[in-house]
Computed example of a mutant assay.
Amino acid sequence: MSRALGLLLGFAADRVLGDPRRFHPVAGFGQVASRVEARWYDDTRAAGASYTATLVGTATVAGLAAERLTRNHPVAHTLVTAAATWTVLGARSLDREAEAMAGLLEEKDIPEARERLSHLCARDATNLEADDLARATVESLAENTSDACVAPLLWGGVLGVPGLLGYRAANTLDAMVGYKSAKYLNFGWASARLDDVLNLLPARVCALLTGLVAGRPREAISVWKRDAPKHPSPNAGPVEAAFAGALDLQLGGTNSYGDYREDRGTLGDGPTPTVADVRRTAALARRVGLAAAGIAAILAVATRKR
């Protein structure tokens, strides 16, 4: 029960406190990863694979050590699990960014909203207008609900602290180097593929939960099955399609990421998002996160009994 209780306490801490303002462990990991990249970078898949394996492996081993040191001390194990969960989750910070974007768009402060979008995604916002920014925000909220909330909770439920830390390390590296740009096409390949594998099941659980908590499971699943294959990402596709079906919106389109453009297909049958849909999406994402926390606690108890 200590793992389940730790996950729920960590989830509650994230909802109440959000990310640590200073000395964030994930930010510290990112700084270390940047230094390692500066030393190890080479435009080859082999170099990128070594980089990924070393950093993700180190984080996972640290989690294993924490589990081993506290396995016979339930209170300590609960607290360590809670701290790790709080560290790796980003649901509250995601919610805050949604609130900030909604406020800026409602105030029609388009220049500031374009700047703020960089907190959610790497999309080039230079020429985006209000509805374009709303669509980008809705899509980013959907994708990051899976990446920053559902996936770490599920991995924590099954594997505990090693699952939490290992997943967050892999996801952070994907966000840093997993781009199809000239610089990272080869070096970031391993990070991107590992993140794809780790999110394969959680993304589909997130898509299913989205339809269920929205009260529109048939619509969400229908759009997911029909439109997700159009999306270039094997995991963002199901999640964004499910959000589109659950919210009765049409997502997708062609996005610019600096030196390359990406066609994400058309997801859903409703109207394209407007400013009002940002808060709707954030509310749905909160409910999905709560449901995922409950499932993670159940998984923790079920796997422990085995």
Rank of each mutant, 00 (worst) to 15 (best):
R3V: 10
L8V: 08
A12E: 04
R15V: 09
D19Q: 07
R22E: 10
H24A: 07
G28M: 05
F29Y: 14
S34R: 13
S34C: 11
R39K: 02
D42Y: 14
R45C: 15
A49G: 05
A62C: 15
A66D: 08
L69R: 12
L69I: 14
N72E: 15
H77A: 12
T85Q: 00
T85I: 05
T87A: 15
A91K: 09
S93D: 15
S93W: 10
D95W: 15
L104K: 01
E107W: 06
K108N: 15
D109N: 13
D124C: 06
D124V: 06
A130Y: 04
L133H: 03
V138S: 00
S140P: 04
E143F: 09
C149K: 01
A151C: 07
A151W: 00
W155C: 02
G156M: 12
G157C: 09
G157T: 08
V161W: 05
G166K: 06
A169W: 06
A169V: 08
T172L: 04
L173K: 04
A192L: 10
N199V: 02
P202H: 07
R204P: 01
A207Q: 08
A214N: 02
A220Q: 05
V223F: 03
K225H: 13
R226I: 06
R226F: 04
H231P: 05
P232I: 00
P232S: 03
G237K: 01
V239Y: 00
E240F: 04
A241S: 13
A241E: 01
A242V: 03
A246K: 01
T254Y: 08
S256R: 14
D259P: 09
L267S: 05
G268I: 13
T274F: 02
L284Q: 07
R287S: 13
V288M: 09
A291F: 08
A293V: 08
I295P: 01
A302W: 13
R304L: 15
